[in-house]
């Protein structure tokens, strides 16, 4: 690994233009497994959540955030109330058709990389609401990474979901720099 990196550095030593330098870093980051692992480690231990709280599940969300269960232990301690600053969207509670465009806009406003946790049965499937008003699971509108069952889920289930998402992020192999189209 170290040899590869040294060769890469040597081969690219002659770069002179800005574009070439950028290409050098892009190749370095995308080829190097160690860099990918370090980045994944950083990502999974510093989730910045955007809590999209619409219903009673919000109480359990607050319990999870509080000192007894304390998801800060998993690095997810800072809720951001702007989607621009968040990388984990937690949809906590029932989503109605009236809210659906708002939820999708919030999701689209988040910068990559981003993940979604569907918190509770209402967000996951509509729960016991099957009527004119309720979205039958937020995965009909936006992609979801982890679903938490329960009405509402216990804080342990939420912590389990955060750990599952951490495992998922650990396995990820995605472009480390944004791809300019």
């Amino acid at each position: 690994m170290a040899d590869n990196q040294a060769n890469l550095l040597q081969n690219e030593a002659a770069v002179t233009t800005v574009e070439a330098a950028e290409g050098f870093f892009r190749r370095l980051l995308n080829k190097n497994e160690t860099v990918q692992e370090v980045v994944n480690w950083g990502r999974r231990w510093s989730f910045f959540q955007y809590p999209f709280v619409t219903a009673c599940c919000g109480m359990e969300y607050m319990a999870t955030a509080g000192p007894r269960y304390d998801y800060a232990r998993f690095g997810a301690e800072l809720p951001r109330f702007s989607p621009r600053q968040a990388d984990l969207l937690m949809v906590v509670g029932t989503i109605t058709h009236k809210q659906a465009p708002i939820l999708r806009t919030v999701y689209e406003q988040m910068a990559e990389p981003k993940w979604v946790i569907s918190f509770g049965v209402c967000a996951s499937s509509g729960g016991f609401y099957r009527n004119y008003a309720t979205v039958q699971g937020i995965d009909t509108i936006i992609p979801v990474d982890v679903y938490i069952p329960g009405c509402p889920p216990r804080p342990e289930a939420v912590l389990d979901a955060i750990m599952m998402l951490q495992d998922k992020v650990k396995q990820e192999r995605r472009a480390l720099l944004p791809v300019v189209k």
Binding site: H97, K98, P101, V135, Q136, D139, T140, I141, I142
Partner: peptide, 10 residues
Amino acid sequence: RIPPRPGQSH
């Protein structure tokens, strides 16, 4: 108000 994602139904 918004259509479902591909392969999904409301």
